[in-house]
Design a protein around this nucleic acid. Structure first.
Lengths: 187, 187
DNA sequence: CAACATTGAGTGTTTAATCAATCAAAATAA
DNA sequence: TTATTTTGATTGATTAAACACTCAATGTTG
Protein backbone atom coordinates (compact mmCIF):
# COMPACT_ATOMS: atom_id res chain seq x y z
CA UNK A 1 0.00 0.00 0.00
CA UNK A 2 1.03 3.56 -0.65
CA UNK A 3 3.24 4.59 2.27
CA UNK A 4 2.56 8.26 1.77
CA UNK A 5 -1.12 7.59 2.29
CA UNK A 6 -0.42 5.39 5.31
CA UNK A 7 1.57 8.21 6.86
CA UNK A 8 -1.19 10.75 6.30
CA UNK A 9 -3.76 8.43 7.83
CA UNK A 10 -1.60 7.66 10.84
CA UNK A 11 -0.90 11.35 11.31
CA UNK A 12 -4.60 12.22 11.24
CA UNK A 13 -5.34 9.65 13.90
CA UNK A 14 -2.51 10.66 16.22
CA UNK A 15 -2.94 14.41 15.78
CA UNK A 16 -6.58 14.13 16.79
CA UNK A 17 -5.94 11.70 19.63
CA UNK A 18 -2.90 13.39 21.14
CA UNK A 19 -2.63 16.78 19.51
CA UNK A 20 0.13 18.16 17.32
CA UNK A 21 2.40 18.97 20.22
CA UNK A 22 2.40 15.41 21.51
CA UNK A 23 2.91 13.50 18.26
CA UNK A 24 6.54 13.10 17.25
CA UNK A 25 7.25 12.09 13.69
CA UNK A 26 8.59 8.81 15.08
CA UNK A 27 5.14 7.99 16.45
CA UNK A 28 3.58 8.69 13.06
CA UNK A 29 5.91 6.38 11.18
CA UNK A 30 5.49 3.71 13.84
CA UNK A 31 1.68 3.95 13.66
CA UNK A 32 1.93 3.75 9.87
CA UNK A 33 4.19 0.72 10.13
CA UNK A 34 7.02 2.23 8.13
CA UNK A 35 10.52 3.37 8.92
CA UNK A 36 11.26 6.72 10.54
CA UNK A 37 13.25 8.02 7.62
CA UNK A 38 10.65 7.52 4.91
CA UNK A 39 8.47 10.27 6.34
CA UNK A 40 11.09 12.78 5.27
CA UNK A 41 11.25 11.25 1.84
CA UNK A 42 7.59 12.11 1.23
CA UNK A 43 7.44 15.31 3.30
CA UNK A 44 10.28 17.77 3.55
CA UNK A 45 9.50 18.61 7.16
CA UNK A 46 6.92 17.80 9.82
CA UNK A 47 5.26 21.15 9.17
CA UNK A 48 5.02 20.29 5.48
CA UNK A 49 3.21 17.11 6.39
CA UNK A 50 0.77 19.08 8.54
CA UNK A 51 0.17 21.56 5.73
CA UNK A 52 -0.38 18.89 3.10
CA UNK A 53 -2.63 16.91 5.38
CA UNK A 54 -4.75 19.96 6.10
CA UNK A 55 -5.09 20.94 2.47
CA UNK A 56 -5.92 17.42 1.30
CA UNK A 57 -8.61 16.94 3.95
CA UNK A 58 -10.09 20.36 3.37
CA UNK A 59 -10.24 19.63 -0.36
CA UNK A 60 -12.00 16.37 0.31
CA UNK A 61 -14.52 18.06 2.60
CA UNK A 62 -15.30 20.99 0.34
CA UNK A 63 -15.68 18.64 -2.60
CA UNK A 64 -18.15 16.47 -0.76
CA UNK A 65 -20.42 19.40 0.04
CA UNK A 66 -21.65 19.83 -3.51
CA UNK A 67 -21.94 16.12 -4.19
CA UNK A 68 -24.76 15.18 -6.57
CA UNK A 69 -26.09 18.70 -6.34
CA UNK A 70 -26.98 18.65 -10.04
CA UNK A 71 -29.35 15.75 -9.54
CA UNK A 72 -31.64 17.97 -7.51
CA UNK A 73 -33.56 20.74 -9.20
CA UNK A 74 -35.51 22.62 -6.55
CA UNK A 75 -33.61 25.37 -4.74
CA UNK A 76 -34.67 24.21 -1.33
CA UNK A 77 -33.77 20.63 -2.21
CA UNK A 78 -30.27 21.72 -3.16
CA UNK A 79 -29.82 23.54 0.13
CA UNK A 80 -31.01 20.53 2.02
CA UNK A 81 -28.63 18.26 0.10
CA UNK A 82 -25.71 20.56 0.90
CA UNK A 83 -26.71 20.47 4.55
CA UNK A 84 -26.90 16.70 4.65
CA UNK A 85 -23.78 16.24 2.53
CA UNK A 86 -21.91 18.37 5.03
CA UNK A 87 -22.87 16.61 8.20
CA UNK A 88 -22.77 13.16 6.64
CA UNK A 89 -19.21 13.67 5.44
CA UNK A 90 -18.23 15.06 8.82
CA UNK A 91 -19.63 12.05 10.64
CA UNK A 92 -18.33 9.46 8.19
CA UNK A 93 -14.92 11.09 8.46
CA UNK A 94 -14.99 12.25 12.03
CA UNK A 95 -11.24 11.98 12.55
CA UNK A 96 -10.57 14.13 9.52
CA UNK A 97 -13.29 16.56 10.51
CA UNK A 98 -11.92 16.94 14.00
CA UNK A 99 -8.48 17.53 12.56
CA UNK A 100 -9.90 20.42 10.54
CA UNK A 101 -11.63 21.85 13.59
CA UNK A 102 -8.46 21.59 15.60
CA UNK A 103 -6.42 23.52 13.07
CA UNK A 104 -9.00 26.03 11.94
CA UNK A 105 -8.80 27.68 15.34
CA UNK A 106 -5.08 28.31 15.40
CA UNK A 107 -3.44 31.23 13.68
CA UNK A 108 -0.41 29.04 13.28
CA UNK A 109 0.05 25.35 12.55
CA UNK A 110 -1.13 25.51 9.02
CA UNK A 111 0.73 28.02 6.92
CA UNK A 112 -1.45 27.48 3.87
CA UNK A 113 -5.08 27.66 4.87
CA UNK A 114 -6.32 28.60 1.45
CA UNK A 115 -5.64 26.88 -1.82
CA UNK A 116 -7.04 27.72 -5.25
CA UNK A 117 -9.08 24.54 -5.41
CA UNK A 118 -10.56 25.10 -1.95
CA UNK A 119 -11.24 28.76 -2.55
CA UNK A 120 -13.01 27.86 -5.79
CA UNK A 121 -15.31 25.44 -3.96
CA UNK A 122 -16.15 28.07 -1.39
CA UNK A 123 -16.89 30.56 -4.12
CA UNK A 124 -19.24 28.08 -5.76
CA UNK A 125 -21.11 27.69 -2.49
CA UNK A 126 -21.05 31.38 -1.80
CA UNK A 127 -22.57 32.12 -5.22
CA UNK A 128 -25.34 29.64 -4.58
CA UNK A 129 -26.15 31.38 -1.32
CA UNK A 130 -26.07 34.72 -3.08
CA UNK A 131 -28.60 33.49 -5.61
CA UNK A 132 -30.83 32.28 -2.76
CA UNK A 133 -30.64 35.68 -1.12
CA UNK A 134 -31.60 37.30 -4.44
CA UNK A 135 -34.56 34.98 -4.78
CA UNK A 136 -35.54 35.88 -1.21
CA UNK A 137 -35.40 32.23 -0.31
CA UNK A 138 -33.14 33.06 2.63
CA UNK A 139 -32.38 36.11 4.80
CA UNK A 140 -30.63 39.09 3.28
CA UNK A 141 -27.38 39.03 5.22
CA UNK A 142 -23.70 38.95 4.35
CA UNK A 143 -23.27 35.62 2.59
CA UNK A 144 -20.04 34.90 4.49
CA UNK A 145 -21.92 35.28 7.74
CA UNK A 146 -24.55 32.87 6.47
CA UNK A 147 -21.89 30.35 5.43
CA UNK A 148 -20.21 30.71 8.80
CA UNK A 149 -23.36 30.09 10.78
CA UNK A 150 -24.12 27.08 8.62
CA UNK A 151 -20.72 25.59 9.48
CA UNK A 152 -21.27 26.49 13.11
CA UNK A 153 -24.52 24.55 13.15
CA UNK A 154 -22.99 21.61 11.30
CA UNK A 155 -20.15 21.45 13.80
CA UNK A 156 -22.57 21.41 16.70
CA UNK A 157 -24.65 18.73 14.98
CA UNK A 158 -21.57 16.57 14.44
CA UNK A 159 -20.44 17.05 18.02
CA UNK A 160 -23.88 16.01 19.19
CA UNK A 161 -24.14 12.99 16.90
CA UNK A 162 -20.68 11.86 17.95
CA UNK A 163 -21.92 11.82 21.53
CA UNK A 164 -25.25 10.17 20.66
CA UNK A 165 -24.55 8.03 17.58
CA UNK A 166 -27.93 6.31 17.79
CA UNK A 167 -29.61 9.58 16.76
CA UNK A 168 -28.01 9.45 13.34
CA UNK A 169 -30.79 7.30 11.96
CA UNK A 170 -33.52 8.95 13.98
CA UNK A 171 -35.62 10.55 11.26
CA UNK A 172 -37.42 12.81 13.71
CA UNK A 173 -34.13 14.20 14.97
CA UNK A 174 -32.73 14.64 11.44
CA UNK A 175 -35.86 16.50 10.40
CA UNK A 176 -35.80 18.74 13.46
CA UNK A 177 -32.13 19.56 12.96
CA UNK A 178 -32.79 20.53 9.35
CA UNK A 179 -35.68 22.69 10.43
CA UNK A 180 -33.54 24.36 13.05
CA UNK A 181 -31.02 25.12 10.33
CA UNK A 182 -33.50 26.24 7.73
CA UNK A 183 -35.53 28.37 10.14
CA UNK A 184 -32.40 30.27 11.03
CA UNK A 185 -32.05 31.27 7.38
CA UNK A 186 -35.64 31.95 6.35
CA UNK A 187 -36.32 35.65 5.73
CA UNK B 1 2.52 41.97 39.57
CA UNK B 2 1.52 38.39 40.21
CA UNK B 3 3.91 36.25 38.18
CA UNK B 4 1.57 33.33 38.07
CA UNK B 5 -0.95 35.54 36.33
CA UNK B 6 1.71 36.92 34.00
CA UNK B 7 2.63 33.38 33.00
CA UNK B 8 -0.98 32.41 32.26
CA UNK B 9 -1.48 35.52 30.15
CA UNK B 10 1.72 34.96 28.21
CA UNK B 11 0.81 31.32 27.66
CA UNK B 12 -2.64 32.22 26.31
CA UNK B 13 -1.12 34.63 23.82
CA UNK B 14 1.58 32.28 22.61
CA UNK B 15 -0.61 29.17 22.49
CA UNK B 16 -3.09 30.97 20.27
CA UNK B 17 -0.45 32.62 18.10
CA UNK B 18 1.83 29.62 17.63
CA UNK B 19 -0.07 26.61 18.90
CA UNK B 20 0.78 24.32 21.79
CA UNK B 21 3.33 22.36 19.82
CA UNK B 22 5.38 25.40 18.98
CA UNK B 23 5.53 27.17 22.35
CA UNK B 24 8.26 25.93 24.66
CA UNK B 25 8.01 26.81 28.32
CA UNK B 26 11.07 28.99 27.82
CA UNK B 27 9.10 31.17 25.39
CA UNK B 28 6.30 31.51 27.91
CA UNK B 29 8.57 32.68 30.72
CA UNK B 30 10.38 35.02 28.36
CA UNK B 31 7.10 36.55 27.16
CA UNK B 32 6.02 36.92 30.78
CA UNK B 33 9.34 38.56 31.65
CA UNK B 34 10.24 36.08 34.38
CA UNK B 35 12.86 33.43 34.80
CA UNK B 36 12.57 30.01 33.23
CA UNK B 37 12.53 28.20 36.54
CA UNK B 38 9.65 30.04 38.15
CA UNK B 39 7.15 28.47 35.76
CA UNK B 40 7.76 25.13 37.44
CA UNK B 41 7.36 26.71 40.83
CA UNK B 42 3.76 27.65 40.00
CA UNK B 43 2.93 24.71 37.73
CA UNK B 44 4.25 21.22 38.28
CA UNK B 45 4.54 20.52 34.55
CA UNK B 46 3.77 22.19 31.25
CA UNK B 47 0.65 20.03 30.95
CA UNK B 48 -0.49 21.21 34.36
CA UNK B 49 -0.19 24.78 33.17
CA UNK B 50 -2.31 23.95 30.12
CA UNK B 51 -4.94 22.26 32.27
CA UNK B 52 -5.14 25.09 34.77
CA UNK B 53 -5.27 27.68 32.02
CA UNK B 54 -8.11 25.86 30.31
CA UNK B 55 -10.15 25.46 33.46
CA UNK B 56 -9.67 29.05 34.58
CA UNK B 57 -10.68 30.47 31.20
CA UNK B 58 -13.66 28.15 30.90
CA UNK B 59 -14.80 29.19 34.36
CA UNK B 60 -14.52 32.83 33.40
CA UNK B 61 -16.52 32.27 30.23
CA UNK B 62 -19.30 30.21 31.76
CA UNK B 63 -19.61 32.73 34.59
CA UNK B 64 -19.98 35.62 32.18
CA UNK B 65 -22.87 33.96 30.34
CA UNK B 66 -25.37 34.46 33.14
CA UNK B 67 -24.17 37.95 34.02
CA UNK B 68 -26.91 40.29 35.28
CA UNK B 69 -29.52 37.75 34.26
CA UNK B 70 -31.57 38.53 37.37
CA UNK B 71 -32.01 42.13 36.33
CA UNK B 72 -34.14 41.02 33.40
CA UNK B 73 -37.56 39.58 34.03
CA UNK B 74 -39.03 38.55 30.69
CA UNK B 75 -38.07 35.10 29.43
CA UNK B 76 -37.16 36.30 25.98
CA UNK B 77 -35.14 39.15 27.48
CA UNK B 78 -33.11 36.67 29.51
CA UNK B 79 -32.39 34.56 26.46
CA UNK B 80 -31.29 37.60 24.55
CA UNK B 81 -29.03 38.71 27.41
CA UNK B 82 -27.40 35.28 27.51
CA UNK B 83 -26.85 35.48 23.77
CA UNK B 84 -25.27 38.91 23.97
CA UNK B 85 -23.27 38.09 27.11
CA UNK B 86 -21.81 35.13 25.24
CA UNK B 87 -20.65 36.85 22.13
CA UNK B 88 -19.57 39.99 23.95
CA UNK B 89 -17.34 38.03 26.29
CA UNK B 90 -15.94 36.06 23.39
CA UNK B 91 -15.06 39.20 21.47
CA UNK B 92 -13.72 41.14 24.45
CA UNK B 93 -11.58 38.12 25.29
CA UNK B 94 -10.85 36.82 21.83
CA UNK B 95 -7.47 35.33 22.74
CA UNK B 96 -9.00 33.38 25.60
CA UNK B 97 -11.96 32.33 23.47
CA UNK B 98 -9.74 31.11 20.67
CA UNK B 99 -7.71 29.15 23.19
CA UNK B 100 -10.91 27.39 24.29
CA UNK B 101 -11.85 26.64 20.70
CA UNK B 102 -8.42 25.26 20.01
CA UNK B 103 -8.53 22.84 22.92
CA UNK B 104 -12.20 21.88 22.79
CA UNK B 105 -11.54 20.02 19.57
CA UNK B 106 -8.76 17.78 20.80
CA UNK B 107 -9.36 14.62 22.76
CA UNK B 108 -6.03 15.24 24.40
CA UNK B 109 -4.27 18.36 25.60
CA UNK B 110 -6.61 19.05 28.44
CA UNK B 111 -6.99 16.16 30.81
CA UNK B 112 -9.62 17.90 32.91
CA UNK B 113 -12.30 19.31 30.66
CA UNK B 114 -14.99 19.34 33.28
CA UNK B 115 -14.86 20.82 36.73
CA UNK B 116 -17.65 21.02 39.33
CA UNK B 117 -17.91 24.78 39.04
CA UNK B 118 -18.11 24.65 35.24
CA UNK B 119 -20.56 21.77 35.20
CA UNK B 120 -22.77 23.65 37.64
CA UNK B 121 -22.87 26.67 35.35
CA UNK B 122 -23.83 24.49 32.40
CA UNK B 123 -26.55 22.86 34.44
CA UNK B 124 -27.94 26.27 35.33
CA UNK B 125 -28.09 27.17 31.67
CA UNK B 126 -29.48 23.80 30.73
CA UNK B 127 -32.29 24.15 33.26
CA UNK B 128 -33.19 27.54 31.90
CA UNK B 129 -33.45 26.07 28.40
CA UNK B 130 -35.54 23.22 29.76
CA UNK B 131 -37.99 25.70 31.30
CA UNK B 132 -38.18 27.51 27.97
CA UNK B 133 -38.98 24.28 26.21
CA UNK B 134 -41.69 23.58 28.77
CA UNK B 135 -43.18 27.01 28.22
CA UNK B 136 -43.09 26.33 24.48
CA UNK B 137 -41.00 29.42 24.02
CA UNK B 138 -38.47 27.38 22.05
CA UNK B 139 -38.44 24.15 20.04
CA UNK B 140 -38.91 20.85 21.82
CA UNK B 141 -35.54 19.26 21.20
CA UNK B 142 -32.82 17.75 23.35
CA UNK B 143 -31.58 20.67 25.45
CA UNK B 144 -27.96 19.67 24.93
CA UNK B 145 -28.46 19.88 21.20
CA UNK B 146 -29.97 23.32 21.64
CA UNK B 147 -27.07 24.45 23.80
CA UNK B 148 -24.63 23.08 21.27
CA UNK B 149 -26.18 24.86 18.34
CA UNK B 150 -26.23 28.07 20.32
CA UNK B 151 -22.48 27.79 20.91
CA UNK B 152 -22.01 26.91 17.26
CA UNK B 153 -23.78 30.09 16.21
CA UNK B 154 -21.88 32.17 18.75
CA UNK B 155 -18.58 30.81 17.49
CA UNK B 156 -19.48 31.68 13.92
CA UNK B 157 -20.58 35.15 14.99
CA UNK B 158 -17.30 35.72 16.82
CA UNK B 159 -15.28 34.47 13.88
CA UNK B 160 -17.19 36.83 11.63
CA UNK B 161 -16.87 39.85 13.94
CA UNK B 162 -13.17 39.19 14.33
CA UNK B 163 -12.85 39.46 10.57
CA UNK B 164 -15.12 42.50 10.31
CA UNK B 165 -14.73 44.35 13.62
CA UNK B 166 -16.62 47.41 12.35
CA UNK B 167 -19.83 45.35 12.40
CA UNK B 168 -19.72 45.05 16.17
CA UNK B 169 -21.52 48.34 16.65
CA UNK B 170 -23.75 47.93 13.61
CA UNK B 171 -27.18 47.71 15.25
CA UNK B 172 -28.77 46.30 12.10
CA UNK B 173 -26.25 43.47 12.00
CA UNK B 174 -26.60 42.74 15.73
CA UNK B 175 -30.37 42.61 15.38
CA UNK B 176 -30.20 40.32 12.35
CA UNK B 177 -27.78 37.97 14.08
CA UNK B 178 -30.06 37.73 17.10
CA UNK B 179 -33.01 37.04 14.83
CA UNK B 180 -31.07 34.34 13.03
CA UNK B 181 -30.34 32.77 16.39
CA UNK B 182 -33.82 33.14 17.79
CA UNK B 183 -35.55 31.95 14.64
CA UNK B 184 -33.53 28.76 14.78
CA UNK B 185 -35.02 28.05 18.21
CA UNK B 186 -38.62 29.16 17.79
CA UNK B 187 -41.08 26.25 17.78
C1' DC C 1 22.34 -2.03 -14.38
C1' DA C 2 20.06 2.33 -13.16
C1' DA C 3 16.71 4.67 -10.62
C1' DC C 4 14.17 5.07 -6.89
C1' DA C 5 12.14 3.36 -2.36
C1' DT C 6 13.26 2.14 2.20
C1' DT C 7 15.80 1.37 6.31
C1' DG C 8 17.34 2.58 11.08
C1' DA C 9 21.29 4.00 13.47
C1' DG C 10 23.29 8.40 14.06
C1' DT C 11 23.57 13.75 14.74
C1' DG C 12 23.00 18.10 16.53
C1' DT C 13 19.55 20.76 18.60
C1' DT C 14 15.76 21.83 21.52
C1' DT C 15 13.13 20.74 25.25
C1' DA C 16 10.99 20.07 29.96
C1' DA C 17 12.35 19.95 34.30
C1' DT C 18 15.88 20.34 38.20
C1' DC C 19 18.51 22.49 41.60
C1' DA C 20 21.94 24.96 44.19
C1' DA C 21 22.30 29.59 44.96
C1' DT C 22 20.40 34.26 45.92
C1' DC C 23 17.15 37.50 47.59
C1' DA C 24 13.29 39.92 50.15
C1' DA C 25 10.41 40.05 53.50
C1' DA C 26 8.19 38.40 57.47
C1' DA C 27 8.52 36.24 62.05
C1' DT C 28 10.97 35.74 66.21
C1' DA C 29 14.27 36.82 69.71
C1' DA C 30 17.32 39.90 72.20
C1' DT D 1 14.48 48.96 68.40
C1' DT D 2 17.86 45.98 66.35
C1' DA D 3 19.75 41.42 65.35
C1' DT D 4 18.73 36.73 63.84
C1' DT D 5 16.20 33.10 61.81
C1' DT D 6 12.94 31.24 58.77
C1' DT D 7 10.22 31.20 54.83
C1' DG D 8 9.12 31.21 50.27
C1' DA D 9 9.94 33.55 45.78
C1' DT D 10 13.21 33.86 42.11
C1' DT D 11 17.10 33.02 39.28
C1' DG D 12 19.65 30.87 35.40
C1' DA D 13 23.05 27.39 34.54
C1' DT D 14 22.63 22.57 34.13
C1' DT D 15 20.92 17.89 32.85
C1' DA D 16 18.90 14.11 30.70
C1' DA D 17 15.69 13.00 27.43
C1' DA D 18 13.23 13.70 23.26
C1' DC D 19 13.10 15.55 19.05
C1' DA D 20 13.37 16.61 13.84
C1' DC D 21 15.99 15.45 10.41
C1' DT D 22 20.23 13.12 7.81
C1' DC D 23 22.62 9.71 5.43
C1' DA D 24 25.18 5.69 4.10
C1' DA D 25 23.74 1.27 3.28
C1' DT D 26 20.37 -1.92 1.49
C1' DG D 27 16.40 -3.49 -1.01
C1' DT D 28 13.27 -3.39 -5.04
C1' DT D 29 11.67 -2.85 -9.61
C1' DG D 30 11.66 -2.41 -14.52
Amino acid sequence: MDKRELLLEAATKLFVERGLHATPTSAISKEAGVSAGILFHYFKTKDDLIDELYVSIKKEYTSSIMNEIDKIHSDLGKLRLIWSNSWNWAIDNSLKFRFLLQLDNTSCAVRVKSHPEIVAKYELFNNLIKSYVDKELIKNMDTYFIMGSMFGLITSMVTYLTQFPEKRNDQVFIEQAWELFYNSLKP
